[in-house]
Write a protein that binds this DNA or RNA. Structure first.
Length: 864
RNA sequence: GGGCUCGUGGUCUAGCUGGUUAUGACGUCGCCCUUACACGGCGGAGGUCAGGAGUUCGAAUCUCCUCGAGCCCA
């Protein structure tokens, strides 16, 4: 064992953190496929490579790193992979902006190349932030979804699901973003409040209320409620659509709300989801009035080519001219928008690719996963329970995984590639065999690409080594940590895909973290100007302080506000603990001590008991992912127990040559060692720095402290000792004495403590006498203290009467209570430990000050 | 409109499988530079645990209602 080295006076995170980041080796965090240790695979969320790792990501990664470091210390073979979910529109838009082009100006492959280039540069920047924050990422398990080795798997999984019938092609109404010019899934629709108008107009004699007059050209029916008296007998008739002149049927349906608008509604293909429902149910025509770019089609006649907004105004003004527009009312509405660009979505019928959703099997797998916090499961349950449409996975974009299929130019038969030819882009590569049906060699490659969620929803299959079989080697993963904002997307799709491809749940448990709010309590956003970056926090207070904010700022699962004060508090805690460590090392270094010395002094036994309690508390917290509880227990122990009480109490002994000094030294050594280990997951640099002065080797390769049995008697007696010392200190303070001033003679009357190794005498600078008997004092019975935790459950309703009866007992019976007691004519048993009588003492004659601490009497005879 | 979460000293927060005095941080006030630490120590003030009703011997904790906030979804 190397001798302890002294610590510098101050802790400089700005010097220490980068230094350790330079010393630590990536290999130490690699997952070892050959290891005999139990595996702990974390299915980490692959962030979108925007170039900045924002505070929400960083918060999530703190949780992951706490878990990874803790599990390694607990003897697991941990995999903390780092993925990058690259594909998608934001990068396409950025590339167009940077190069001053639109995506159609260059060949598809050229455009993809530009996107890849930007993405790799962004990933490079984000890797640096991950390192600065001290995350123990397993870089040997990094994956980048846009690179061939990954999207090969995406394409392979597509073909597998196509073969098993999970994926199909169909013409079906889908959500469509006319700005992104692509279909999107329901999970990508965000609802936003919006002020609009409800327009009432005359529709061939029937008054119709609509918010979307521009869809008049797409009107295929008029609907009224089945039992609406106003429209009795109208059902089955045909009406002529104003302006456009085509005939549409009137239908009746339960789903029409008679109280909304005029009670008559026009059904258009498609204004909203309800229109789709009616369209299907009543087998209505399809009239497509808006195209993929959001412009009116030839169906709209003279309005063709107008944007839908222009068309709305034009139609309204034409209606006014015709005198059929009756009135307009303002209306608060929630419109579906594209979650990426906020453009209101259109619903249009398109030939698209879909993944079949089987709610029951997804639900079954979701139930097998352990959810933390438990209530987050309800969100998944609600989402699964209301699935109506299948998942639309085709997108009309460029920077994404190509759908690897061709169609025969002659007969239209689908032609699939061989697994060994993946990855491929069917628009540039040809199949190696002609059409099986007609022998034609001419093919058309599928131009649609896959939804980005098709890439990321196999993250777990990727890290567990999936190769197409139903049981990947490391599958299922042990945990999925993620935010609650992507339960209906990433978590949902991952479960769906795991079930479809392996038949099993993807992970044993899922840990859902909250969102990060700004200091003003609102979600961080550019417009609010309340964004704080991890970099600026690390710059000012270091990454360990940031990590402690993440741990202690909120209970696991709830949203967390970013508060500078919490970061400052964390950095103060580091200063405090630094000084504690410095003091300990200073004392231990002064003189050799026996590491095996028997621990006998009361204070020493007490500290070990408190430490044992802390180890259990922190271990339990880590097991349950209650990082706030764990860190708070560590702070409480370090500051309150160790620094404020124990050290103050044993200082005298440490300064002395007394043989009992060894006992204190040993206890301090064991305590600081255990503390370093427990703080290591939270503040890896800080604990490593202290640990490096204690022993050789990294704290991060040590074991988690073993839970020790807690000597409860030592703990309770020690608690009393501490309380006595602090009460007498307070007394000194009140008497206007300096805390190190001589106090005189203190006598403590208690049978609980007979000696304390002289700690109290030195701490108070007084002569201490412990006396078990109280014969020198005049006694008189005092207050009766009831133990409600015993009385309540035992006596229920009779509790109050019981207490009254006990109070009425004569004095001599109180000290020696009877087995039975009479309450209101009823005999009841007196429960053990149900009450105790305090004793009050009086001191006659001698001039002494008296302090009462619990049932201990303390007399102080000050120096004359 | 439905679902979920929440409302605790000035601010943020723990506790919420019911049990004596409601946790901690920041702030605030007073005292102390006592040889680890003034980025510290000691002490104080500050709470109708959103409001109301109920269950119970006992409610911050369980139930119901009202008000308010946030999130998810129609």
């Amino acid at each position: 064992m190397s001798p302890p080295k002294d610590l510098p006076k101050n802790y400089h995170f700005a010097e220490v953190e980068p230094r350790w980041q330079g010393v630590w080796r990536d290999e130490d965090y690699y997952f070892d496929k050959k290891s005999p240790l139990p595996q702990f695979v974390i299915d980490t969320p692959p962030p979108y490579p925007t170039g900045t790792f924002h505070i929400g990501n960083a918060f999530n990664w703190c949780y992951i790193d706490f878990i990874a470091r803790y599990k390694r210390m607990q003897g697991y073979n941990v995999m903390f992979p780092q993925g990058w979910d690259c594909h998608g529109l934001p990068t396409e838009v950025k590339v167009e902006e940077i190069h001053g082009i639109t995506k159609n100006d260059v060949p598809r492959e050229k455009f993809r190349e530009m996107c890849r280039e930007l993405t790799l540069a962004n990933i490079g920047k984000m890797r640096l932030t991950l390192r600065k924050l001290g995350f123990s990422v397993d870089w040997s398990n990094e994956y980048i979804t846009m690179l061939p080795e990954y999207y090969k798997k995406t394409q392979f999984s597509f073909l597998k699901m196509l073969a098993s019938g999970y994926i199909y092609q169909s013409e079906h109404p889908v959500n469509f973003c006319t700005r992104c010019e692509t279909a999107i899934a329901f999970a990508e629709v965000a609802y936003e409040p919006r002020e609009t108008h409800l327009n009432y107009f005359d529709f061939d004699g029937v008054e119709i209320a609509t918010t979307r007059p521009e869809l008049l050209a797409a009107c295929v029916a008029v609907a009224v409620h089945t039992e609406d008296e106003r429209y009795r007998g109208i059902s089955g008739r045909h009406l002529t659509v104003p302006i456009f002149g085509h005939q549409v049927p009137v239908i009746s349906d339960e789903a029409v709300d008679p109280a909304f608008g005029s009670g008559a509604v026009m059904i258009c293909t498609f204004g909203d989801k309800q229109d789709v429902f009616w369209w299907k149910q009543h087998h209505l025509d399809l009239r497509k009035a808006i195209d993929r770019q959001g412009r009116m089609t030839p169906v709209a006649g003279k309005y063709e080519g107008q944007r839908s907004g222009e068309c709305r105004e034009a139609i309204l003004s034409d209606m006014k001219e015709l005198g059929i527009l009756k009135k307009q009312e303002p209306l608060e509405q929630r419109v579906g928008t594209c979650w990426r660009c906020k453009t209101p979505i259109e619903i249009m019928s398109e030939r698209q690719w879909f993944v079949k959703i089987v709610p029951d099997e997804i639900m079954k797998a979701a139930r097998e996963v352990k959810w933390t916090p438990g209530h987050m499961f309800l969100r998944m349950e609600n989402w699964i329970g209301q699935m109506e449409w299948d998942w639309c996975i085709s997108r009309q974009r460029i920077f994404a995984t190509p759908i690897p299929v061709w169609f025969c130019k002659e007969c239209g038969t689908m032609i699939l590639p061989d697994e060994k030819d993946l990855p491929l882009d069917p628009t540039t590569k040809k199949p190696d065999h002609p059409c099986e049906k007609c022998g034609c060699a001419e093919v058309i490659g599928e131009e649609d690409v896959l939804d980005t969620w098709m890439d990321s929803s196999i993250s777990v299959l990727n890290v567990t080594g999936w190769n197409g079989t139903r049981t990947p080697p490391l599958f299922p993963a042990q945990i999925r940590p993620q935010g609650h904002d992507i339960i209906r997307t990433w978590a949902f799709y991952t479960i769906l895909r795991a079930v479809a491809l392996t038949g099993k749940r993807p992970w044993d448990e899922i840990l859902v973290n909250g969102m990060v709010l700004g200091e003003d309590g609102f979600k961080m956003s550019k417009s609010r100007g309340n964004i704080i970056t991890p970099e600026e926090i690390v710059e000012q207070y270091g990454s360990d302080a940031f990590r402690q904010w993440a741990a202690a700022g909120a209970a696991t699962g709830s949203d967390i506000m970013f508060i500078w004060n919490d970061v400052i508090a964390a950095s103060r805690f580091q200063t405090k603990l630094w000084n504690v460590a410095r003091f300990i090392l200073l004392q231990l270094g002064k003189k050799e001590f026996n590491h095996e010395a028997p621990v006998t002094a009361l204070a020493d036994c007490w500290l070990l008991a408190k430490l044992a309690e802390t180890v259990s508390e922190v271990t339990e917290s880590m097991e349950q992912y209650q990082f706030d509880r764990g860190l708070k227990a560590l702070r409480e122990f370090s500051w309150n127990v160790l620094a404020d009480n124990y050290i103050e109490l044993v200082k005298g002994r440490l300064y002395s040559d007394d043989p009992s000094r060894d006992s204190a030294c040993r206890v301090l050594w064991e305590t600081i060692d255990a503390l370093c280990r427990m703080i290591a997951p939270y503040a890896p640099h800080f604990s490593e720095e202290i640990y490096s002065h204690l022993k050789r080797g990294s704290v991060h390769t040590t074991c988690w402290p073993e839970p020790l049995p807690c000597d409860q008697e030592a703990r309770d007696t020690g608690d009393l000792l501490i309380r006595l010392v602090s009460e007498i200190r307070r007394f000194k303070h009140e008497q206007g004495l300096a805390l190190n001033a001589p106090l005189g003679k203190v006598t403590l009357f208690t049978p609980q403590i007979s000696e304390d190794g002289g700690d109290m005498a030195r701490a108070l600078n007084a002569t201490i006498e412990w006396r078990a008997d109280t014969s020198a004092l005049e006694k008189r019975p005092g207050e009766i203290v009831f133990n409600m935790a015993v009385i309540g459950p035992a006596l229920r309703k009779d509790a109050k009467a019981f207490m009254d009866a006990v109070r009425a007992l004569p004095g001599d019976l109180l000290s020696n209570p009877p087995a039975m007691i009479d309450i209101g004519g009823k005999q009841v048993e007196v429960p053990a430990n149900s009450f105790s009588q305090q004793t009050e003492y009086l001191v006659g004659g001698a001039r002494v000050d008296m302090i009462t601490v619990g049932d201990v009497i303390v007399t102080v005879q000050k120096n004359p």
